[in-house]
């Protein structure tokens, strides 16, 4: 296990390095000049050159990369082209909205999906099992921002139960107010996320129910629930955990989109503004931090899987199929 941990950590570091290169190249090699952010449409050549020098776009590509890479290693993500504010602290401030939003949504989605997926599988022939499957089919086809729009209209505009958007100016100074303004966004994301989670949990449960080992246990006299909890849970949960890692990352993205429905001052709205303004340091910084989070989640999911299922402990990369 120690050897595995070390190798998997090494894989994490290499993945992060690859991600940095990909991020950098996607932004720089594709057409479009970082200096455009600073310029009006009818800028003179001198102005263009000055702007390029100011943002460092006149340096060779490799040197731009090493400058950025070195900065990241010393935890300096650079400064915004537009506001000249340092990127790192700004991202940290935005995280105080996005991280709670993501985690609360994910927790609520799991609370809905675990029983729903289990019931949809075990009671696949009853009307409520079929209904749950139907809802999960619908849920994976609905755009998350539209669900947000509908919920706002019902619960904020018509019923006036919850605020339709925004976030307290003093952040978490008043936790009650902050949580209230997160309520509708959290419900929105959780509803949509729980649909795909329900499907995975349902199919994992079905796999367990149809498995040979469960049949053997039943043949030896174990009750269905006894066999399920003793053998099924541990076997069935392994594929679910790797999905959970991916789904948590997707929840994070759902947060990015939903923030713009509810005008929350999170990472998503920062990214959107940065993209509209071609503010490369901000875009790079946000995506870098998101990548790191996503990779760490994947790392934790893999380690958790190995802890539960010793059969997986031989392969390095996540999928285990060679």
């Amino acid at each position: 296990m120690t050897v595995y941990l070390v190798r998997r950590l090494g894989f994490l570091v290499i993945s992060f390095a690859i991600a940095m290169v990909v991020l950098f190249l996607l932004l720089r090699v594709l057409p479009g000049d970082p200096a455009n952010a600073l310029l009006s449409v009818n800028a003179t050549q001198e102005q263009i050159d000055a702007a390029r020098a100011q943002v460092g776009a006149d340096l060779p590509l490799f040197q731009q990369f090493t400058d950025w890479f070195g900065g990241v290693l010393s935890l300096d993500l650079g400064s915004s082209f537009i506001s000249s504010l340092p990127v790192g602290p700004e991202i940290a401030a935005r995280m105080s909205v996005t991280i709670p939003l993501t985690l609360l949504s994910f927790a609520l989605a799991l609370l809905i999906a675990l029983p729903a997926g289990f019931i949809a599988a075990v009671r696949a022939d009853r009307w409520y099992g079929i209904l749950l499957s139907g809802f999960s089919q619908l849920g994976i086809a609905v755009p998350v921002f539209w669900v947000g729009m509908l919920l706002v209209n019902v619960f904020a505009v018509n019923l006036r139960w919850l605020p339709s958007g925004g976030f307290p100016r003093d952040d978490w100074a008043n936790p009650g107010a902050a949580l209230t303004s997160l309520a509708l966004p959290v419900i929105t994301i959780a509803l949509v996320m729980s649909a795909s989670l329900t499907r995975y949990i349902r199919s994992a449960t079905l796999d367990v129910i149809g498995s040979d080992y469960l049949r053997s246990a039943r043949a030896q006299g174990a009750s269905f629930s006894g066999a399920f909890w003793r053998h099924g849970l541990r076997n069935g949960i392994v594929p679910v955990i790797s999905i959970l890692g991916i789904e948590l990352a997707t929840t994070f993205l759902g947060a990015v989109v939903v923030e713009s429905v509810f005008t929350l001052p999170g990472l998503g709205s920062m990214l959107l503004t940065a993209i509209q303004q071609h503010d490369y340091p901000n875009i790079q910084g946000i995506l870098l931090v998101s990548t790191l989070l996503v990779l760490v989640i994947g790392f934790l999911a893999d380690v958790a899987q190995r802890l539960i299922d010793p059969r997986l402990r031989t392969s390095i990369s996540g999928n285990g199929i060679r």
């Binding site: 690859i18 991020l23 990352a249 940065a274 990548t291 996503v294 994947g298």
Partner: peptide
């Protein structure tokens, strides 16, 4: 290739697409 793909897949489709749109307009 697999390691690179794992990194890319970890990224939700929309975020990658946003990144490319950011560069391309």
């Amino acid at each position: 290739i697999s390691a690179t793909l794992d990194v890319l897949i970890a990224f939700p489709v929309l975020l990658l697409a946003m990144l490319i749109v950011a560069a391309q307009g």
